[in-house]
Design a protein around this nucleic acid. Structure first.
Lengths: 102, 102
DNA sequence: CTTTCATTTCAATGATTCTTGAAATAAGAT
DNA sequence: ATCTTATTTCAAGAATCATTGAAATGAAAG
């Protein structure tokens, strides 16, 4: 991963509504959750939620799939893992001290 | 850590110049590096570098100390570790799948 | 084929962040 | 005291991001 991509991904994580969405998707498990249910759960308007879901799915942090009338979103741990890996191994050169911190 | 603080920290990481600064500080080791040397290393102007260093030190990702004429910056792995920990444990509920990814 | 439901898209606006270069501050050297 | 070096601060402008509510889209139901 290059720094620009990592920066873009960190940008997606730099909003607490989006972190709330991620938490909701993690709690939902592999089956995921519909846009409407996510909006209700985090207490945000449909259009606001859709805006944040677009950021998450465009960058691969979530994937989406239509289920009849609803759009269902799932968390993609691989994208988050790749970002953590970039931060620990590339940015922080595999620092042993950092590894001890988390 | 609460979501707002995590979002702020992710915001600091969401800029590739700042990721370059972090890399420079990690390479510099515990002794750190002066603002001027960092600017030269990442190829950015002093004022731009200072702007990014302020973001890093205000959020605890780096610490600074004056050494005569220079200001010396050091990486703070604990802050980065706390953020990774928030993402893995709080946001992602300690997901085993995520742990396998990084 | 119209209605309803679920969601996104759009345009407008406001807020935040980034960049630039000039001026200000801080500290040591002459 | 003045000069030079190191860095920050500031103001202006550009760019990006977030929020809102209304309109558009897509899919199923009546």
């Amino acid at each position: 991963m290059i720094a620009e991509d990592a920066a873009r991904l960190f940008g997606v994580l730099s909003n607490s509504d989006r972190l709330d969405v991620i938490r909701a998707l993690v709690e939902a498990g592999p089956d995921g959750m519909s846009a409407g249910d996510i909006a209700r759960k985090i207490g945000a308007s449909p259009s606001k939620t859709s805006f944040h879901l677009a950021a998450l799915s465009e960058t691969g942090i979530a994937s989406k799939e239509r289920r009849s009338r609803s759009l269902n979103y799932q968390i993609n741990f691989a994208a988050i893992g790749a970002l953590i890996n970039f931060l620990m191994e590339d940015c922080c050169k595999g620092s042993a001290e950092l590894r001890r911190c988390c």
